[in-house]
Design a protein around this nucleic acid. Structure first.
Lengths: 335, 335
DNA sequence: CATTGGTATGTAAACGATTACACGCCAACT
DNA sequence: AGTTGGCGTGTAATCGTTTACATACCAATG
């Protein structure tokens, strides 16, 4: 069933059918009705390949996502897909893992499909080592690229992010100002955003004249970051004589592990131990006591990504870098 | 940059270039090398539209998902996307909401893109009201359709599911056999799977000769099912004089609310109150005490969906309905 | 040497849309 | 009446592939 079939049954030319399909004004009301009737009757759906071939666009946005089961990313995914579709764009999903090669292949795939734009999620690239980022540059040569929570100074690349450094800085300050002096920092990722957060932590200590004990910085591999492993690690640290009166984490899930530790070690939260997470995810309401966390404005970021993409595709000038400010949401794990 | 450019630079015909691209054996080693060199040199990527137009397939699977931020579905999403890509298929994502119209439009979209197959996730359709399911029938007319955790007797539609009824039945029996007599059942959904679960609950009571008090069946709207609302509702029920010694829920998140209630009401878990969730999601390890839950074999289901899809696309005969058996994973909220 | 058969390559016709351009018609002008 | 212009419609080229079929070549065979 193609446009010729329709044109034959409606007794018009294919050009007219195409005009009806595309709401062209140059069709008489009569003809339009006649053609529409045939289309409805046959259940005809235009072939998107042919259309794409002719127009060299298929109204598709490519989403590159390292892990759609990560609650943070999956929330972004849902929002982005819905918003783009409302704008008339479909989404092609490519869940690479974090490995550079996989991401390169993902970009290649999206390019071959001639997506109109690419949103790069969970980017692990490093701003100051540009050689690692050739694939972004490469992608940006053919289509606009928007980075979720990252920035990269390159033509046709737009960054929409939360100021993680400042957000962690403020969270750390709030802990220091509530009297904590030894804040354990648990983190998952050494990527750009991860390093910014760490800087925020260090700066806060400098601002308050508190020295940072490097033993308080504790890295968890992505795979090994299960709740129980965090708990056990902290128990071991305590046994090894490490003192800490607060835990700050780069992800909410790590804070859940910290709470498990507190219970196992018999430490009261927040009286003996303060805990602050990051992302303000739905997990925060699930723990007991409920988790104080940094809201990193995912929703606003996604909204702005869609706006930016639409603007760029319309040929408008758009800001290359947009930064939102995180916000500490106090619940029950802080004084 | 198209196939003509390549053929010109390599001094061969477009047919030869195409053969090289498609690993046809009918190309001499010399020519292949020559063409490959040009391709690498120019960074040429074949146009997927043209290819799709010619072949009438683009090696794409359509994923219809009501809500990618649902942890259950997003986990499935991640797994499916990765597995399909390993098989050489890309995924087009369409996050409709649950509304029938939205799902219809989603199917329409996937059809226009000539996906090779469709996976329907989170289907809320009802097996015994076939009129609501025209869109499935419609989709199945053009491509194979596979349902995640559902079944629908229709040609070209395949169901891969967990026997939710039996799983809930066994969970209920285990509560009854541990001495509980008034099991509160909290559920989120009245769809097919939701009703099956309820049946499992009722059957278990019949099997043990315990009468079901209808007041113990408690429905939560998807939007209103937040942890705090569940807690407050249960507190209210208690205040209204309803007695219950166990809570069984259709989703883990509802169980989290039940645990919040227990803490607020000063009831010890599991001594005064047993709690069982459903899905065995990552939430189970986050609560305190950790949540006993039904593992509904999502991983196995997804694996089988991919196998089935690949089989069907290869023209093999595949089972129309596959059922996995759930398993109760005991943790700390049951005796 | 003529015939056969296989292999490497090229030619040209699809695939199904969009759209520039051409055409015919009719109303409204001069 | 003849010219103009606008509107509705149709014709045909175009997008970049794949692939059936044709062709050219060369080695092996009778």
């Amino acid at each position: 069933m193609n446009i010729y079939d329709i044109s034959r049954r409606a007794g018009v030319s294919i050009a007219t059918v195409s005009r009806v399909l595309n709401n062209s004004p140059h069709v008489s009301e009569n003809t339009r009705k006649k053609v529409m009737a045939v289309i409805e009757g046959t259940g005809y759906v235009p072939n998107a390949f042919a259309r794409g071939l002719g127009l060299n666009t298929m109204k598709t946005i490519g989403l590159l996502c390292p892990d759609a089961s990560d609650p943070y990313l999956s929330q972004a995914l849902t929002y982005l897909e819905r918003a783009f579709r409302q704008q008339g764009y479909d989404c092609l999903l490519s869940c690479t893992d974090k490995a550079l090669l996989a991401r390169q292949q993902g970009v290649e795939l999206l390019k071959s499909r001639h997506v109109d734009g690419i949103v790069l999620m969970g980017s692990s690239f490093i701003e100051d080592d540009p050689s690692e980022n050739d694939y972004i540059r490469d992608a940006a040569r053919s289509v606009p690229v928007i980075l979720l929570n990252a920035a990269f100074p390159c033509d046709n690349v737009y960054g929409v992010q939360c100021d993680d450094q400042r957000a962690v800085n403020e969270a750390t300050l709030s802990l220091l100002d509530s009297g904590c002096r030894r804040i354990l920092y648990l983190y998952h990722s050494r990527n750009y955003s991860g390093r910014k957060k760490l800087t925020g932590y260090r700066d806060a200590h400098a601002q308050r004249g508190v020295e940072v004990d490097e033993k308080l910085l504790c890295f968890f591999d992505q795979d090994k970051g299960s709740v129980h492993q965090v708990r056990d690690t902290l128990l071991q640290l305590e046994k090894d004589g490490l003192c800490f009166d607060a835990v700050l984490t780069s992800e909410d899930i790590l804070s859940v592990g910290a709470l498990k530790y507190a219970r196992a070690a018999g430490r009261r939260v927040p009286e003996d131990l303060s805990v602050i997470g990051y992302n303000n995810s739905s997990l925060c309401a699930c723990t007991e006591p409920e988790l104080t966390s940094v809201d990193n404005k995912l929703f606003a970021i996604c909204e702005h990504i869609v706006t930016t993409m639409m603007g760029v595709l319309d040929g408008k000038e758009m800001p290359q870098k947009t930064v939102f400010t995180g916000e500490l949401v106090k619940r029950e794990t802080t004084k």
